[in-house]
Nucleic acid binder design. Sequence first.
DNA 1: TGACTATACGGAGACTGTCTCCGGTTAGCA
DNA 2: TGCTAACCGGAGACAGTCTCCGTATAGTCA
Lengths: 204, 204
Amino acid sequence: MGSVTADTVVSEDDARPMRADARRNYDKLIAAAREVFAESGAAGSLDEIAKRAGVGAGTLYRHFPTRDDLIDALMRDWTDRVAADSEEAVAAGLPPRETLNNWFEAFLGHITLHRGAAAKINAAMDDPASPIYRKCQALGTANDRVLDYVRETGQLREGVDSRHVMRLVSSIATLSDDARIGAAETAPMLGIIVDGILVDTASS
Amino acid sequence: MGSVTADTVVSEDDARPMRADARRNYDKLIAAAREVFAESGAAGSLDEIAKRAGVGAGTLYRHFPTRDDLIDALMRDWTDRVAADSEEAVAAGLPPRETLNNWFEAFLGHITLHRGAAAKINAAMDDPASPIYRKCQALGTANDRVLDYVRETGQLREGVDSRHVMRLVSSIATLSDDARIGAAETAPMLGIIVDGILVDTASS
DNA sequence: TGACTATACGGAGACTGTCTCCGGTTAGCA
DNA sequence: TGCTAACCGGAGACAGTCTCCGTATAGTCA
């Protein structure tokens, strides 16, 4: 894995200034976590991350009380990218079927950050206490945007709920990295969902 | 959980007679595993199972080298029940939509034996080395049966593959027990899949 | 019935991972 | 320069997995 754009991760909303040494360690931990998660998936050893960052385990757990807090920190700019992709899918002005295909493909890409990430995001979707919960809401908003676009074309099937669609695609993502399945297998599955979402007039 | 029909689990294909003490411990382990898995899901502690069965850890690991071997043993009559349900769904002679709804519901029930079982089965689907692999094939056969029935009615959408349908339903099952979602949420998701599978003539 | 041996038993303990606690250190400020 | 709140680190408690090997015994044969 190449250098992963050492973004200095400015604290997001709680603007309490961090002591210099704390910030230094925070950044080292983020970098190490990127490495370890990329290698071993989202279940990688936390102690290993601490070791690789050159800090003690205590330091890691102080900064990130739970594994989800760490993953959350790794996803800083993730919501922006997700939103951008959904806007792009809509702006392209393509027919519903193509739009959905493009969007779902992007969706799959985002949700499979590392091995195990999809399952993590999926689980956080219904757990407001999870640090990742907000990311899921962003994903939901993005998905709504695309489905609203499709609805305007009049080709969205009656009664289709964005939330269920999101869940379906997420669970395909989870399956795909649990079972090491590639796009060759997921594409037809997404196809079934697209057919389940769109009315059949002018089905290609 | 009531007494779970203390089936004496006659060894399946390898008919080598088991020593009496070994059989005794085998049965105790199965019973203990049923208990522990029911309480803690498929990730329950193996040592706890051994302890509860009143045997050493070594005994457990000799009988069941991996966790999957144990789960496999717990699923002895599972394939029969799955096959029976698929035959029933077909024999009822209902319209495709109802048939699929009934079958998928049964499918979901079978695959969620305990918490975590769905994920386990899902993962085994592509791992011929797993002891659970054969069970997955049985599930596939049953699903084929139902889809063939639907195909005969002429309402199966062109290009729909039984395998992908099975994967979709399985991943909904995994999601449903990962995220503690009930039928109220899974039903609409299954609905989307049914719509994606059937052609729209005479859609209800 | 009394050996004999293949088979099975069990639990100590090595190993891995999570997470906490607290004595020691240091950045930032007056 | 000195003070203190904030931070550091790693030993170690805890939990789970899995193996190894000395001990026990079921089943058999004379």
